[in-house]
Measured scan of single mutants.
Amino acid sequence: MGTYKLILNGKTLKGETTTEAVDAATAEKVFKQYANDNGVDGEWTYDDATKTFTVTE
């Protein structure tokens, strides 16, 4: 398990959240659902060194 971070750079929603997941693929699924639930759809990037996903609208 590891802690993964999501940085939201949406047009109307900005912020950060974290999740505990077994791997990056699992964290990505959780974060994409979170972003979708909050109406954020954009370009995704992932930094393996910091376990950080970023979505920018």
Rank of each mutant, 00 (worst) to 15 (best):
residue 1 M to S: 12
residue 1 M to E: 09
residue 1 M to F: 08
residue 1 M to R: 09
residue 1 M to K: 14
residue 2 G to N: 15
residue 2 G to I: 14
residue 2 G to F: 12
residue 2 G to Q: 08
residue 3 T to L: 13
residue 3 T to F: 09
residue 3 T to V: 11
residue 4 Y to H: 02
residue 4 Y to N: 01
residue 5 K to S: 08
residue 5 K to I: 12
residue 6 L to F: 07
residue 6 L to S: 00
residue 7 I to M: 07
residue 7 I to T: 10
residue 10 G to A: 13
residue 10 G to K: 04
residue 10 G to E: 03
residue 10 G to W: 07
residue 10 G to N: 04
residue 10 G to R: 04
residue 11 K to S: 14
residue 12 T to F: 15
residue 12 T to Y: 15
residue 13 L to T: 07
residue 14 K to I: 08
residue 14 K to H: 06
residue 14 K to W: 12
residue 14 K to R: 14
residue 14 K to V: 14
residue 14 K to S: 15
residue 15 G to C: 07
residue 15 G to K: 15
residue 15 G to E: 12
residue 15 G to L: 15
residue 16 E to M: 05
residue 16 E to Q: 06
residue 16 E to R: 05
residue 17 T to L: 13
residue 18 T to D: 08
residue 18 T to A: 08
residue 18 T to I: 08
residue 18 T to N: 07
residue 19 T to N: 04
residue 19 T to F: 15
residue 19 T to I: 13
residue 19 T to M: 13
residue 20 E to P: 06
residue 20 E to S: 15
residue 20 E to F: 14
residue 20 E to G: 05
residue 20 E to W: 09
residue 21 A to M: 03
residue 21 A to V: 05
residue 21 A to E: 04
residue 22 V to F: 15
residue 22 V to P: 12
residue 22 V to G: 06
residue 23 D to N: 12
residue 24 A to D: 05
residue 24 A to Q: 09
residue 24 A to F: 15
residue 24 A to H: 10
residue 25 A to Y: 15
residue 25 A to G: 11
residue 25 A to S: 12
residue 25 A to M: 12
residue 26 T to R: 08
residue 26 T to H: 12
residue 26 T to L: 06
residue 26 T to V: 08
residue 26 T to K: 06
residue 27 A to T: 01
residue 27 A to H: 00
residue 27 A to W: 00
residue 27 A to S: 02
residue 28 E to A: 08
residue 28 E to W: 15
residue 28 E to V: 15
residue 28 E to P: 00
residue 28 E to K: 09
residue 29 K to C: 04
residue 29 K to N: 15
residue 30 V to L: 11
residue 30 V to G: 04
residue 30 V to N: 10
residue 30 V to Y: 11
residue 30 V to I: 14
residue 31 F to A: 01
residue 31 F to E: 00
residue 31 F to C: 02
residue 31 F to N: 00
residue 31 F to Y: 02
residue 31 F to D: 00
residue 32 K to F: 08
residue 32 K to C: 04
residue 33 Q to D: 14
residue 33 Q to G: 13
residue 34 Y to I: 09
residue 34 Y to G: 01
residue 34 Y to A: 03
residue 34 Y to D: 02
residue 35 A to R: 01
residue 35 A to E: 01
residue 36 N to M: 13
residue 37 D to R: 06
residue 37 D to M: 11
residue 37 D to G: 06
residue 37 D to W: 06
residue 37 D to I: 09
residue 38 N to E: 11
residue 38 N to S: 12
residue 38 N to D: 03
residue 39 G to Y: 07
residue 39 G to S: 09
residue 39 G to I: 04
residue 39 G to D: 11
residue 39 G to F: 15
residue 39 G to K: 14
residue 40 V to H: 04
residue 40 V to W: 13
residue 40 V to F: 13
residue 41 D to A: 09
residue 41 D to K: 11
residue 41 D to V: 10
residue 41 D to Q: 12
residue 41 D to N: 11
residue 41 D to W: 11
residue 42 G to R: 01
residue 42 G to Y: 03
residue 42 G to N: 02
residue 42 G to W: 04
residue 43 E to C: 05
residue 43 E to W: 08
residue 44 W to S: 01
residue 44 W to R: 00
residue 44 W to Y: 02
residue 45 T to V: 10
residue 45 T to Y: 14
residue 46 Y to R: 02
residue 47 D to P: 00
residue 47 D to Y: 04
residue 47 D to S: 15
residue 47 D to I: 07
residue 48 D to F: 12
residue 48 D to A: 14
residue 48 D to S: 09
residue 49 A to L: 13
residue 49 A to Y: 10
residue 49 A to Q: 11
residue 50 T to I: 07
residue 50 T to K: 08
residue 50 T to R: 06
residue 50 T to S: 08
residue 51 K to G: 13
residue 51 K to L: 12
residue 52 T to E: 05
residue 53 F to S: 00
residue 54 T to S: 06
residue 54 T to I: 06
residue 54 T to N: 05
residue 54 T to Y: 09
residue 54 T to H: 06
residue 54 T to F: 05
residue 55 V to H: 01
residue 56 T to L: 07
residue 56 T to H: 08
residue 56 T to R: 07
residue 57 E to G: 05
residue 57 E to Q: 07
residue 57 E to M: 05
residue 57 E to I: 06
residue 57 E to R: 02
residue 57 E to Y: 06
